[in-house]
Design a binder for these strands. Structure first.
Length: 688
DNA sequence: CTTAGGG
DNA sequence: CCCTAAG
């Protein structure tokens, strides 16, 4: 009885063309050129503003000669910095190009001049940086930047030349950072996935036992000392977020900072919606998402990484709902929890690859068991359950590096990210059938973890337990000042999920740089029970007697996810703007439902809302649901635009009618249950 | 893609 | 509104 052909129905998409989205260049490649000019100006102003402000607070005089200064800094800072083996560019190109490209924004390629020009800049005294920025902020330079952003990362060095404090600061002009993200999104992880070179070039360097999976995940065999002779903490202290690569190649000014962000794996080609997630809100927070490290040998380590936490066993390839991010953005640590809420893993359609692609993973080989799953064996009257955890997955780590960064830099960056997570302490969470088992007092049996249980769905998570993070003060005075600014910024930031052009505000805000930093500080590493940062899953490897590093290939084939992982939404979709139904719409809906019933939402949609692209049948169904609910509650409990009582009455009537009608239909079809078919009074029976 | 429900 | 499991 479908009135119309599906051909006519083209509104089931989520997108509502009608809803104006904040203008944003979703695809950098297209908009790049046009935005350059504008951004150039902004960049200049921004830089100037920042520089000006900071200079005021800076007592130290600065060199106006960039090259000189940079080289000096370089000399000071480079020493003491362990370097990874040389990784020739050629090699990167030959073997690691895929990996590299997947990690780095392509934008950088376009700024060779800048790159060379700012060589050596990465590590500079914070004041100097500011100075440098002001110096650089000439139209010419900006032009060369040919980029939408200028990021600066500052480091404060002590007399020994050791870096004591790193303050990552970024000035974003335009939407570079977002674009980068998108660029990454545009890349195909598959390209990387099967490339062993990622492992070769990155993993080996980071740690002989740690591998970076081609899918962007990091595998860190937990057997024994991943970081042999260095206490995690210590390692952590030396972490430099990719400020300088290991080949002594400094990135250009516009790529000074390396950001750790929850890693969002590249979507497959078909995932268009990925771009959606990169919309304003996300973008706005993007700068803050990056993690930076702030540490001072005197004041103790202060490091903050931002990572995204994920929810139990399921992880979505891409992300967390933006609204959550938003919260996270403005509320700092507190909102971490929220962010974790609806993550679920995706992908079956991707042959289990998604898992790997989606998550950075630390893989542990399962130890015991001859069985792939947790198995129990009798032992007296108390059955034992044997657990063999094959792997732990690290949550997404978003690492962003300029294309000009070296592979060595990438290695370090990843290493740092992983180290930060591990080093800050983790705790284990247990997930069974997708649900976290929170009650520590329950017995395994009670929790359903028995030899007879469905242990295939048992998983373990490594949850971050950072508590010491980003504590307090930074040595620099202006940091404090900026803090207040940042606070203000946070306060005035609307909590609404709908954000306009996103970056604009931030990018224009002279305090943006510091704000970012501050944000990072305040939101540093939080531990949230809800948000496991590391995921572990029971291996599917039948019988591994020992813990062995799992090669990317292996892990892929293992597809270690606790079963029920579906491939669905693999992108961070922005929540649609809320669009309350008008009385007129409600009326139309009621009318349509009265006519068509409550089980034909597509028809209802076509019949009554065919022109309303923003109303999907799901929306209508949901609206009906709420209407029905509304009708069932007292008027004073209702909110929003009041719905005429008569409509509500019709809702109840229609609902009632169609409930019976459906029962009838069912009865007819089933045929086996006569009493259901007709008697209206048997309404309740239907459910049985 | 649609439905139906839970969140 | 979102997200998913089921058809």
């Amino acid at each position: 009885m479908v009135p119309k052909k599906r051909l006519d129905y083209r509104f089931n998409g989520r997108r509502s063309p009608i809803i104006p989205k904040a203008p944003r260049s979703i695809r950098r490649r297209c908009s790049h050129k046009n935005s350059v000019e504008d951004n150039k100006l902004c960049a200049f102003e921004l830089l100037a503003a920042v520089a000006g402000k900071l200079l005021q607070e800076s007592e130290s005089s600065v060199s106006s000669n960039v090259e000189t200064h940079a080289s000096t800094l370089k000399n000071e800072n480079v020493k003491g910095q362990p370097k990874d083996e040389q990784t020739p560019k050629s090699e990167s190109i030959d073997h690691g190009s895929c990996a590299e490209s997947s990690f780095m924004p392509e934008t950088s390629v376009q700024e060779p001049d800048l790159s060379s020009k700012f060589k050596g800049l990465p590590q500079v005294d914070i004041d100097s940086v500011l100075e440098n920025i002001s110096v650089f902020a000439s139209p010419d330079v900006l032009k060369k930047l040919d980029c939408d952003s200028v990021q600066g990362t500052c480091q404060v060095s002590d007399a020994d030349g050791n870096t004591n404090c790193e303050v990552g600061g970024s000035v974003f002009v335009g939407n570079n950072i977002n674009l980068r993200a998108e660029d990454q999104q545009d890349m195909h992880s598959e390209d990387v996935i099967n490339t062993s070179n990622v492992k070769d070039h990155v993993g080996e360097c980071v740690n002989s036992n740690m591998l970076i999976k081609s899918d962007n995940s990091v595998q860190l065999p937990l057997y024994r000392d991943p970081i042999p002779h260095t206490p995690l903490q210590q390692q952590w202290n030396t972490v430099k977020l990719g400020i300088r690569d290991d080949d002594d190649n400094y990135f250009g000014c516009n790529k000074l900072s390396t950001k750790f962000r929850p890693f969002r794996p590249q979507p497959r080609t078909g995932h268009r919606r990925i771009r959606k997630m990169l919309t304003s809100k996300y973008r706005k927070m993007a700068p803050k998402q990056r993690s930076c490290e702030l540490y001072n040998s005197r004041d103790g380590v202060k490091s903050f990484y931002q990572y995204r936490k994920r929810i139990y066993t399921h992880e979505r390839c891409l992300q967390a709902p933006i609204k959550k991010r938003k919260l996270f953005d403005h509320m700092g640590t507190v909102s971490h929890d929220q962010e974790a809420s609806n993550n679920s893993i995706s992908n079956a359609s991707e042959k289990g690859m998604c898992m790997d692609k989606c998550n950075s993973g630390i893989i542990l080989e399962r130890v015991s068991g001859a069985s792939p799953t947790v198995k129990g064996h009798k032992k007296g009257k108390d059955p034992h359950v044997k657990f063999s955890i094959k792997s732990f997955k690290v949550p997404e780590l978003y690492i962003e590096l300029p294309e000009t960064a070296s592979v060595g830099s990438l290695k370090r960056t990843v290493m740092e990210a992983v180290t930060a997570i591990l080093g800050s302490g983790v705790r284990v969470g247990v997930v069974l059938q997708g649900k976290k088992v929170r009650d520590d007092n329950r017995t395994l049996q009670q929790a359903g973890i028995s030899q007879n249980g469905d242990l295939d769905t048992l998983g373990f998570t490594l949850e971050p337990s950072f508590t010491n993070i980003c504590s307090t003060k930074t040595t620099k005075k202006h940091t404090t000042i900026l803090q207040s600014d940042a606070d203000r910024e946070l306060l005035r930031s609307p909590a609404t999920p709908m954000v306009d052009s996103g970056i604009s505000n931030a990018s224009v805000d002279p305090h943006f740089v510091s704000k970012v930093d501050d944000d990072v500080v305040t939101s540093g590493f939080l531990s949230s029970p809800q948000t496991p940062s590391v995921e572990a899953v029971n291996g599917t490897v039948p019988d591994s007697k020992a813990l062995v590093p799992v090669s990317p290939t292996n892990s892929e084939s293992l597809a270690v996810v606790p079963a029920n992982l579906k491939p669905k939404k693999s992108e961070l979709s922005q929540r649609r703007t809320r669009r309350p139904f008008s009385v007129g719409e409600v009326e139309a809906l009621v009318e349509a439902v009265e006519r068509l019933g409550t089980g034909r939402w597509r028809d209802v949609k076509m019949g009554a809302f065919g022109h309303a692209d923003h109303r999907t049948y799901v929306d209508l169904k949901d609206k009906w649901k709420t209407l029905y609910h509304t009708a069932g509650i007292s008027p004073h409990q209702r909110r929003g635009e009041p719905v005429p009582q008569d409509l509500l009455d019709r809702v109840l009537a229609a609902h009632s009618y169609w409930s019976l009608h459906q029962l009838k239909q069912q009865g007819k079809q089933l045929g086996a249950e006569p009493h259901r078919t007709v008697d209206p009074m048997k309404e309740t029976v239907g459910g049985a």
